[in-house]
Simulated scan of single mutants.
Amino acid sequence: MIIILLILFVILAFFAIMLVKDAKLRWLYTALSFAAVAFCLVLITGNAHDHWGMKVKTTTKKVQIYSAQDQNTYGVLAYQPVGTSGREKAFVYKASTTAKEATVAKPDLKTKTAIQDIDGNQAFQVTKTKEYIYDNGFYQFLFGWAGNNHEVKSKQVTYQVPATWIALSTQDGAKLKAILAQKMGDADFISWIQQNKQEAADDPDQAAKDAVSYYKNVLANG
């Protein structure tokens, strides 16, 4: 609507200049029309740059995620640092137990990511989104042309990982795989694997915790 008003005031200014014969009235109507045009431009700029007429709404969504490698006795959350700083990460997991392909969640410029340790044996993705919405119907009617209702201000995605899961960067994953390949001829390692599998049949959570602890130790000392 604000664009329509802007166009109307520009047209009025044009007609005031071209059609009003009285000089004083012509200058008055022209000045008022251009003042209205300027006011519309200020409103448009304020909405586009500072989100005038809008407020921030925060929503939180929590969904369970599943291991990217479901053949293990423990869960795996893989990630790859993104960008030169490496602060943000792309995460790899499965969205359901029946998913054939893993999901690769890549952050954008408005998204921050984190890993959080939690209790239990299930992993979750918690997404906290802050978005701009219009204060009321009047502002939406006035500025709705911009299509910025529900525009994302920021997003925080936290991956909650229990002790039965291991969070691994792709680099650490490759390192761990290489170390374990060397251990495949080690009788003690093979014996531990068999014991861990047997334990998983009786107490899967404890077996998962033991496996995660073991592999973290291997990485730390490898």
Rank of each mutant, 00 (worst) to 15 (best):
V20A: 09
K128G: 03
L32W: 07
G185S: 05
G147A: 01
F14V: 10
A23M: 10
A31T: 14
T103N: 06
K175H: 09
K130A: 12
A178F: 02
T98E: 15
D210W: 06
L32P: 00
A16M: 04
S33V: 01
A31M: 13
L41D: 02
Y66P: 05
Y215R: 01
G222N: 04
A123F: 03
G173D: 11
I166H: 02
I17Y: 14
F189W: 14
T170D: 15
T60D: 10
T103M: 07
A163Q: 10
Q195P: 00
V104P: 04
A167C: 04
H51P: 00
A16N: 10
T59L: 12
Q198H: 07
N136H: 10
T59H: 08
N148R: 08
Q194I: 05
M184V: 12
G53D: 08
F141E: 07
T97D: 12
M54G: 00
I2V: 15
I3M: 14
K128V: 15
S191L: 09
L19C: 11
F141A: 14
G53T: 07
Q69W: 06
L25H: 10
E88L: 02
K197F: 10
A207C: 06
L12K: 04
S85C: 03
I166F: 03
L12H: 10
I44S: 06
N217F: 12
S85G: 02
Q198N: 14
A68K: 02
F143S: 01
G83C: 05
A211R: 11
Q206L: 13
S191C: 03
V42P: 08
M184W: 03
F14L: 14
A114C: 04
G144R: 03
I2C: 12
L77E: 08
F141S: 15
T73Q: 11
A174K: 13
D135C: 01
E88P: 01
G144M: 06
V126T: 14
I190S: 13
K94A: 00
T158V: 12
A78M: 11
K155V: 14
F39Q: 02
A207E: 03
V104E: 14
A200W: 06
I179G: 04
L32K: 00
W165T: 04
N72Q: 13
H51R: 15
A68W: 00
A68R: 00
V56A: 03
Y215L: 02
A31Q: 03
A95S: 15
K100R: 11
Y215F: 11
K62A: 07
K100C: 02
G144V: 06
K175A: 10
T60F: 05
K21Y: 05
N136S: 13
Q116D: 11
A99D: 11
K175V: 12
D135L: 09
A208D: 11
T60S: 13
A31Y: 08
Q194D: 08
Y214F: 12
